[in-house]
Structures are given as structure tokens and as C-alpha cells.
Design a protein around this nucleic acid. Structure first.
Lengths: 243, 243
DNA sequence: CCAATAGTGTCTGTCAGACACTATCAG
DNA sequence: CTGATAGTGTCTGACAGACACTATTGG
């Protein structure tokens, strides 16, 4: 038995322990573009820069619970689609000390996004531009409402880039898109969300066929109102029972 | 500024810090079946049970470096395909104390798998049976060489299940399969790896077409030897330059 | 020659993209 | 009626599955 085994079994407290935090990518769709909610750092390091909201994980708190708590504290929101993204553990990612961060992706409907902004006015809704096509991966641009391109604090740009990559990858085989839509939505809205995330335009008949064949959509018989043209039917998302 | 913000910015040491470990899913293909290397626990809790090899993350060690170190310590191996899988952070996942574990997937060629077994005879090569089809997800069965079905320690069964799910999901859009094959291999061997991971049999002409069209394979002009029938051509994996 | 596997040609069904068409609203 | 968008019918090309066929080895 080597030293590591010994310590693992007998005395893990002999190790110096880095603190563990969760950081949240609060993502929504605004004006048919992905948008993220940021907090301004008022302390060093990176004072004045924008960052992902985060918080430390309590000793009696699971990672998922910590992420839900941070969501609550930073947005005033009770619930949202939350999923673990990746754990960032470079030694120097925070210049103050070694901090391990478990990144979570939080998906907000447009309504929830706006409610968070209203509840926490210090949050900045920044647009996310994804320059790469498909699932190539790469860095993304974060643009403030005034049009200013932002440099995020720490490695948060990499976290955000991974969030966008994950979202694109999961879009057509999972139900993540529905987490970004209200309960009732039109097929056009669903297509708009897909197009915003993918950064491409999609073929309308093909998109409708695929979505309807999937069996996740329930036609409500109700129609949108207020449009100056033919109103679209409203659908509801129903997770398939077989899946 | 709320308390969490305050602590994050000024005094993270005020938090009790759970230790962070890495656990490795050492995966290879044996007899056209996925197999995993396990270590036997000789201490409580779960004494006598088989577990994934792991170790604590040092304060000056990134997660990736810690995973590579554990790979080295537990298998004697210098290199393997290593990728972060998921971070498991339930409060009671270890009954002794709260430990957060960052799981890594390590892919070994058959040769590397056998070399690890030779270097570390305490390792157990267990077969992994994946009862679910497609990418449904679910639990997997771990079977010792003698045929005994094993119950893994801690939440390691869930970690292994996630590893198999991830591997299936990445199989046809990434190059993970090549991490399980030697440098030179036949198309039949590549298909065998795919079939072992997917748990299904694949159509030969279609598989060959797709793989060759991908542009990742380079025909060497050399052929396997020793077979009592027509020898197959040997190919080499070449990551695409455009990707 | 035979047995066994490597490797290929070709048909067919499925499905996504493209395009044009019809349907339905406000005004 | 027009303008705008919802929603559909249909063609076509790409491609995966299936099957049968040829090729090449050892014996």
C-alpha cells in the first residue's frame, strides 16, 4: 500500500483541502439570441470585471443543492433547469488561492430571465455570440447591452464556452429547448430557440416534422392571439412516457 | 452584499472544506466486452468490496494532473486517454465523511489493460454488462472473472454507469474508439470495439463506409498476419486536420 | 478443391432539405 | 382585396441497412 492509499483510508485530513465552489451559467434567450446573467466583481482580483454568479459549497450540502441555493440567492428564483456542466480545477484559476469550481448550467425562460433581472438589478444581461459553427467548440463573445465586448473574470469565459457547446450538443437529442420556453408555445417559438442556440436558420417543414414525430409535443387546440396575421397553434411539452 | 458573497470574497477559509478526490474508471475491451479494473477495499466502509481506484487531489495539483497521477500509481501506466466524466457530490456518498469525487474515464488499449494487470496484480479485471439499449441510461452489471456479480463500493456503480453512457454517446461523433485500439488495427477490430460498447451488432458495409468517409483512417498497405484466411488491411488513426 | 473471413456493388426504405403551395388572420 | 405568417404536399438527394456477390488466404 502506497502513501496515497494510506492517507485515503486513514487520514484524509492530512491533505490540505481546496475550497469547492459552484458557478452558474444563467442562460436565457433574448431577442432570439442567447443571453447570460453576470455579476460585477467589486473586489480584487478582477475588480470591475463581470463574472458568473457563484458560491462556496457547504460541508453539509450536495453540489446540486448548492447550485440551487446559489440560484435562489443570486436570482431570487425558486426553480430552473439546472444541470452540472464540468468541474474546473486548474491550480491558478483564481489568483488568491486554489479553488475548485463545479460549473452548472441553469436554463431560464424569457419570463424567468426578466424576473431575475427585476429582482436583482445588479445583474447584467449580456448577449452571447457563438462564432463557431456546429459542435466544433471554441471561445464565445460576451457583449453588454450597450454593445461593449466584455472580458469575463477568472476562467469564466471558458465555462461559458463549454455551456454553449453542451447546449448545442444536447439540443436535438434532449429536451433542453423546452426549459427555455414558457409552458405554452408555438412551433415557431421552438424553432426560434433552436436557431438561437445553433446560430443557424433551420428548414421549417423539416423542423416541424421532426418535432411532431418525436412525440413530445401536445397540441392544445388553443391559438396565440394579438398577431396581425394567422395565429399559430399553441403546444405543450409532454415528456414521453416510454423514455 | 449577502453573507455568501462576503465569505467568497474575503474569507473562504471560514467554510469547512470537504476533501476532493478523483476516481478513475479504467476501461478496456476484453473478449469483445467492456471491462473495468477494480481495487479491493480492505478497510471499512465497504471492506471487501470492489471499488474504482482513486486518490485525493493535492492542493497544488490540478484535477487532470491528479487523475494522471492516480492512473500512474494504480496501473503503473504513463499515459492513457483521460477525460473528466462528472463530479459526484452527494453528502452521504462516503459514510466516513463528506468527500467530493471528480470521476474520470480512462480508456486503455487491450495491451495497456493487460500491462496494468501484470504490473498491479491486485487489480481485478471485471466485465461490464450494459443491459439497456441505445442511450437510455440505467445501471450496469459488473461481473468478476469467475462469473460472480459484484456490488461496487460507495456510489461507484453509478459512476461506472455514467462512464458507459458517456462512452456510448461519444462513440460515433468522436474518436474515443481509437483510444481502445492499438496503433495499427483492422476495420474488423474497430467494428468489434464499437459493437462491444454499443452492445449491438452493426452492419459491415455501412460501418466501413462511414468510417472511411470520415477521413480519420489511413490505410497502411500492410496486412495482418497469422490468420488462417484472407488477412485484413491494417489502418492507422489520423486525427483530421480540419477538425 | 473447401472453409473462413475480407472487402464491394447495388437495391431500397427512410428522412432531411428545398420549394411551392394552401390556409387564415388583421385591416 | 393585400400583406404577413401558419401550416402542408411533394420532390429529390444523401445515406444507412440488407443482401449477395467477389477476393484472398491456409490447408
Amino acid at each position: 500500500m502506497n502513501e496515497t492509499d494510506f492517507l485515503k483510508d486513514y487520514d484524509p485530513s492530512a491533505f490540505q483541502r481546496p475550497p469547492v465552489a459552484v458557478d452558474l451559467v444563467l442562460l436565457g434567450i433574448r431577442d432570439n439570441r442567447p443571453a447570460v446573467l453576470l455579476v460585477k466583481r467589486d473586489q480584487h482580483p478582477h475588480a470591475g470585471r463581470w463574472a458568473l454568479p457563484g458560491g462556496f459549497v457547504g460541508i453539509d450540502e450536495s453540489l446540486d443543492v448548492a447550485a440551487a441555493r446559489v440560484l435562489r440567492e443570486k436570482t431570487g428564483m425558486a426553480e430552473a433547469h439546472l444541470e452540472q456542466l464540468y468541474t474546473f480545477g486548474a491550480v491558478d484559476r483564481d489568483p488568491r488561492m486554489r479553488i475548485i469550481s463545479v460549473a452548472y448550467l441553469a436554463l431560464l425562460t424569457e419570463r424567468a430571465f426578466d424576473a431575475a433581472l427585476a429582482a436583482m438589478p445588479a445583474l447584467l444581461p449580456a448577449a452571447v455570440h457563438v462564432p463557431w459553427a456546429g459542435e466544433t467548440g471554441g471561445s464565445v463573445d460576451v457583449v453588454a447591452p450597450e454593445g461593449e465586448k466584455l472580458t469575463l473574470a477568472f476562467d469564466h469565459a471558458a465555462i461559458l464556452a463549454m455551456a454553449m457547446l453542451r447546449l448545442r450538443g444536447k439540443l436535438d437529442y434532449s429536451d433542453v429547448a423546452f426549459a427555455l420556453l414558457p409552458e405554452l408555445f408555438t412551433l415557431r417559438q421552438l424553432q426560434d430557440v433552436h436557431e438561437a442556440i445553433l446560430g443557424t436558420s433551420l428548414n421549417k417543414p423539416a423542423f416541424r416534422r421532426r418535432q411532431l414525430d418525436r412525440g413530445w409535443l401536445v397540441a392544445t387546440g388553443a391559438y396565440e392571439s394579438g398577431a396581425a396575421f394567422r395565429p399559430a397553434e399553441l403546444y405543450r411539452f409532454q415528456p414521453s412516457t416510454a423514455d
